[in-house]
Design a protein around this nucleic acid. Structure first.
Length: 879
RNA sequence: GGGCGCAUAGCUCAGCUGGUUAGAGCGCCACCUUCACACGGUGGAAGUCGCAGGUUCGAGUCCUGCUGCGCCCACCA
């Protein structure tokens, strides 16, 4: 150990911090050193496990990504400095509709699961000329290959962004949700849930998207307000001339009407219960029954039940065992129907068929128009059934990615039972710590209001297939009650190409043979397994035991009902545990009133790379880390600017601090100890915040101290002594404190600003502390201040700061020429502090030549008072 | 209709368990090319803390009720 410090020559360093090159060089160095590698040999209690959200790779990169991923990285870097063994993986979510659509478009292909797999298919980006021809049809395995090929490109772009942003991910722990590993875990999950009896299939009315041609789950719904019309339509009572008026927004469902209902207490309609009504146009007699679900105030108080207009219709249909008259088909068009046949009885089948022919094959909105026209025509000597129309606005259910309203259509679907597990799920929500805490309410509310079991099957081609087949009986009809499940060793399997045990390929589709379940899982079925995907659940028990449950799940608040909810559900059903201990919720990036997201086309203006070019990666991270958890943040270039300014200041202040030369010596002076004591307060505060996952107050505290206490005050107060020739002991104390202060500040900033802090660390401290990277160094602890300071000493530093402030004010006053006649400064303080301040005072004094004030510091050095600053008042501003 | 959150300087926000004249950054004004930093420094102006009550010696902070904005959810006839 040498007896002088390793100093730097500022002339030898670039005038400005060359962020772009530094970012590249350090990223490469960190990767080469394996700095972020998880060490499987260390025990669980020394490990910090992150359940990283896998980004959807088909979206364009935008600042919203940068924002939330930085939050996680900041926490991770803090935990790493606390000495924890970090497990920080990265996944790519390339399983789902966005990828499917992109692949279809990019290569101009479509998937047909009935096709056999072709070896060695080479695809090219389709030209617009090619796109005029019919698309090429691919087997499902080929289609998945195409997805994997295309998403590889996107993943490269993400990787480059993440690395430049400085995410300290262990890149060896990478997965893709459409890859073999994830397919296997998802299929294992299915087999386990089957074995535990949580799954069932049923042929029942299900929310159906007519464009995507698939069922959707409750979690994928969104309400949209649409303009609509309440149509008052007259129904006749069977066998009489009496009529009543129902109100409906969906007159096109008139042929699907199966009953009429009103409130049991409704005097207007009481006498009708038990009788039958006759529908106009189709003359179908339907039951009239009472139901207390009916709102007497709404519409006319009496309404028609159709199969199916909404969820209430489904409920009545079930409870009252009403007939099924499905008129809307899977493609969203009115089906062909023959009145007079079974189930389609009519008092005048001929007229009914004539009327129905007008709307068969039409879309609902066209059919509605036509039906209303017909209802508006008065029969001979009578009144038209359409009596009145009233415009309204009402909420209509849509698939969140869809363009047309959802329909209820009876189809066979697979469900995971959750309705009977609400209280267990709520209890799990209580076992998880939510940050911020109020986000738990979102989870609880959703769980309490859950209405359907989880529909896990989708009639899509691309996705993780059900590992399952059905036996075909002698007539070639599938036996849904007793499916053939894949064996675990077979996974991942695509049942459209794989064969169940005990069968041969030749028996596919043959009577007495088998047929594949062609559905795929809801993408959340796979995404809800991210902790288990990382831990290799069901595949490597030893690893799973080490990595499950995780410590931290970072995520956005709008997917609490999906991602967080399903992940909690899966962990409960599979392992009887919570999937992680902490959920850390980031807010959104907003621009004006709009959330910045892929659906909105990203931020106006600069891309993440352009922002980093302009403000440095550290500057961009600074902006992210400034946001409080769960709170939306404005996209504001000023904040990036402030971040870059901080980086620049750190660069320059560090140069200055590390160019001061002195022999090594103890920190003995009051001012130096006071400064370090004040810094220790900041360390305590930052640590406390970080422990609660609140990085932003930690950054704020550090930043404030850095600017106002370190650069503005302490550097000014210590620099005269640090260069003094005639006070060797005071000089050694100042330089030692300067360096220690800088070192501690670098460590405090390291989680947020990895590049600039590592750069400065390398100038001196890497060698001095025998720690090549600051990111593997310890978070500052009390040990660093051992024997030097104590928080109670900070008063002397506060006093000195006030003194400097007074001097500065007097300088400014002198410059503007209003402080005449002020010629001396009194500082009443313990001698120890006065000694330290004397050189500052004399130095500044000589320059300023003005000022008269008194600073009184109490003997305990815990407080101070500034007295008698006498300046002439500033002259009134001329207006 | 239910739940949650927000409302503090022109803008973006911080103000923990209630305690003396309410803070920061940006912007604005004045001054300063001085040793690492003009990608800088120093100083300054600027707020009836959404509104109305209440609790308290004392309220930006706690309670009640309003108003506005945002988000999540809802059974949509």
């Amino acid at each position: 150990m040498s007896d002088s410090y390793r100093t730097i020559d500022p002339q030898a360093l670039p005038k400005h911090f060359d962020a772009e090159n530094v970012e590249q060089a350090l990223t490469a160095r960190w990767e080469a050193a394996g700095l972020y590698h998880y060490d499987p040999s260390r025990p669980r209690d020394e490990t910090f496990i992150v359940d990283t959200p896998p980004p959807t790779v088909s979206g364009n990169l935008h600042i919203g990504h940068v924002f939330s991923y930085t939050h996680t990285d900041v926490v991770v870097r803090y935990k790493r400095m606390r000495g924890l063994n970090i497990f920080y993986p990265m996944g790519w979510d390339d399983n789902g509709l966005p990828t499917e659509r992109r692949v279809q478009n990019h290569y101009h292909v479509r998937c047909d699961p009935s096709l056999p797999y072709e070896e060695g298919v080479e695809l090219e980006k389709a030209s617009s000329k090619v796109k005029k021809k019919p698309p090429r049809m691919l087997s499902r395995p080929n289609f998945i290959e195409a997805c994997e090929t295309l998403t590889k490109e996107d993943e490269k772009a993400y990787l480059a962004l993440w690395q430049r942003l400085g995410l300290s991910v262990d890149w060896r722990q990478e997965y893709s949700t459409v890859g073999g590993h994830c397919r296997k875990v998802a299929q294992l999950s299915f087999l386990d849930l089957m074995a535990k009896g949580h799954l069932y299939s049923s042929d029942a009315p299900t929310l159906w998207d007519v464009d995507f041609q698939t069922a959707v789950a409750q979690a994928e719904l969104e309400d949209r307000d649409l303009a609509s019309t309440f149509n008052d339509i007259a129904f006749k009572v069977e066998g009489s001339d009496e009529e009543f008026i129902i109100a409906t927004t969906r007159p096109e469902l008139l042929p699907a009407c199966v009953a009429v209902t009103a409130h049991p207490d409704d005097e207007r309609y009481k006498h009708l219960f038990g009788k039958r009504a006759v529908t106009p146009l189709f003359n179908v007699p339907v039951r009239i029954f009472p139901s207390d679900v009916v709102d007497m105030e709404k519409g006319t108080g009496i309404l028609m039940i159709c199969t199916f207009g909404d969820q209430t219709d489904v409920q009545w249909w079930r409870d009252e065992t009403l007939p099924l008259r499905q008129v809307i088909g899977r493609r969203g068009r009115l089906l062909q129907i023959e009145y007079g046949t079974e189930g389609w009885e009519s008092l005048d089948a001929e007229a009914a068929n004539r009327n129905y022919a007008e709307v068969a094959g039409k879309r609902p909105e066209q059919a509605r128009k036509r039906i209303l026209e017909m209802l508006g025509e008065a029969p001979e000597g009578g009144q038209a059934p359409l009596r009145a129309q009233k415009p309204i606005n009402h909420a209509v259910k849509f698939f969140e990615k869809g363009d047309r309203p959802l329909e209820f259509i009876p189809t066979r679907q697979w469900f995971c039972r959750l309705m009977d597990k609400k209280s267990d799920l709520l209890a799990r929500g209580e076992q998880v710590q939510w940050h911020p805490a109020f986000m738990r309410d979102r989870f609880s509310l959703w769980t309490e209001n859950l209405q359907f079991d989880w529909c896990i099957s989708r009639q899509r081609y691309f996705g993780v297939p059900f590992p399952m087949w059905y036996r075909l009986d002698e007539q070639g009809q599938p036996d849904y009650a007793d499916p053939l499940l894949a064996a675990p060793e077979q996974l991942p399997v695509d049942p459209t190409t794989g064969v169940p045990a005990g069968f041969e390929e030749a028996q596919r589709g043959q009577p007495g043979g088998f047929v594949a379940e062609s559905d795929v899982f809801d993408t959340w079925f796979t995404s809800s397994m991210t902790p288990e995907i990382s831990s290799h659940w069901g595949i490597d028990d030893e690893r799973h035991g080490r990595l499950f449950p995780a410590d931290m799940r970072p995520q956005a608040h709008e997917i609490i009902r999906t991602w967080a909810f399903y992940t909690i559900a899966k962990a409960m059903l599979h392992e009887g545990q919570v999937p992680w201990h902490n959920v850390v919720i980031s807010g959104w990036v907003v621009q004006g009133k709009d959330k910045i997201s892929k659906s909105k086309g990203g931020a106006k203006g600069l891309t993440p790379h352009e922002l980093m070019d302009k403000f440095t990666a550290d500057g961009v991270r600074y902006w992210s880390a400034n946001a409080r958890l769960g709170v939306d943040t404005a996209f504001d270039e000023n904040m990036f600017k402030t971040g870059k300014r901080l980086v620049t200041k750190l660069y320059n202040a560090s140069k200055f601090a590390l160019m001061q030369e002195a022999p090594k010596g103890p920190i003995t002076r009051e001012l130096d100890k006071g400064f370090l004591a004040a810094l220790q307060r900041v360390v305590d505060e930052a640590t406390k915040s970080f422990e609660a996952f609140e990085f932003s107050p930690a950054l704020k505290a550090t930043e404030t101290f850095f600017w106002s206490s370190f650069t503005d005050s302490y550097l000014e107060l210590a620099k005269v002594r640090a260069r003094s020739e005639d006070d060797p002991e005071g000089r050694a104390s100042a330089v030692a404190a300067l360096r220690l202060g800088l070192e501690v500040l670098l460590r405090l900033f390291a989680p947020v600003l990895p590049y600039i802090t590592e750069t400065v660390w390398g100038w001196a401290f890497a060698e001095e502390r025998d720690a090549p990277s600051i990111h593997a160094a310890d978070w500052p602890s009390a040990a660093l201040f051992e024997g030097i300071a104590g928080p109670q000493r900070a008063g002397s530093f506060d006093a000195a700061t006030a003194c400097l402030g007074a001097i500065n004010r007097s300088k400014t006053a002198a410059n503007v020429g209003v402080a005449r006649g002020i010629t001396s400064m009194q500082l009443a303080a313990p001698q120890a502090l006065l000694d330290d301040l004397a050189p500052v005072r004399d130095d500044v004094w000589a320059a300023a030549k003005v000022g008269q004030f008194e600073i009184v510091v109490d003997e305990a050095l815990s407080g101070f008072e500034v007295r008698a600053i006498e300046f002439e008042p500033k002259p009134e501003k001329k207006k």
